[in-house]
Amino acid sequence: MFEARLVQSAILKKVLDAVKDLLTEATFECSDSGIQVQAMDSAHVSLVSLNLRSDGFDKYRCDRNLSMGMSISCMSKILRCAGAEDTVTLRAWDNPESITFIFESPNKDKLAEYEMKLINMDQEHLGIPETSYSCVIKMPSGEFSRICRDLSQFGESITFACSKEGIKFSASGDYGSANIKLVQNTDADKEEEAVVIDMQEPLKLTFACRYLNCFVKAGPLCNQVQLSMSDDVPLVCEYKIGDIGHIKYYLAPKIDD
């Protein structure tokens, strides 16, 4: 059988909020090492890679590897039924046709079970090569969300230009143009407020706002976001999920026609 328990169901709620605008369904690969999801959005422009390690769960048991196709919208609806302080347990039998979500209140006076039918999905897995990136930026996730939101008003895409002076985000369109520059700031009072720029080579890449604004939905999972970029390869936008894992979004850059 498969059983995974998280004392803080809020983490799983936030994970669902971070993927539900990009994915309608996804295969959850469960093994001894944890839960992995790799899925592209319907337009095949971005890829979501989610990893939740088994040792990050409060209880984890997976007797045999399982691939469970799940409706993200249905899972999201079920997780909305969990109380903020509830514990969540995911449970499935071997060769499952459904998965059960069990929510337990902190004082154990309420137990709710939601059973969700699994869906058959074509297995499709992409090999992501190890890449050494020209620029790796760490910055507050709230700041990144704000920049994407603000610049989206000016155009459909945002250009990221990284130089030794810092990183400049810019957008332009029919109404005008805007740019926001950030310089390295490792003296911030709090670690989560730091901006760290590790640049090997300057670069300039353009990405679609529509997808960036989906990625920033992972902001509540982590105070910091890491952006890894090189010429002609996808941007990696990574949020750590506490001590349990991470969510990485890959986005192909836009190219000049």
């Binding site: 095949h44 090569p129 850059p253 836009k254």
Partner: peptide, 13 residues
Amino acid sequence: MSQRSIDSFFTRI
């Protein structure tokens, strides 16, 4: 500008 698809960067396994 045009948008490349993400699967063109990765290999199917």
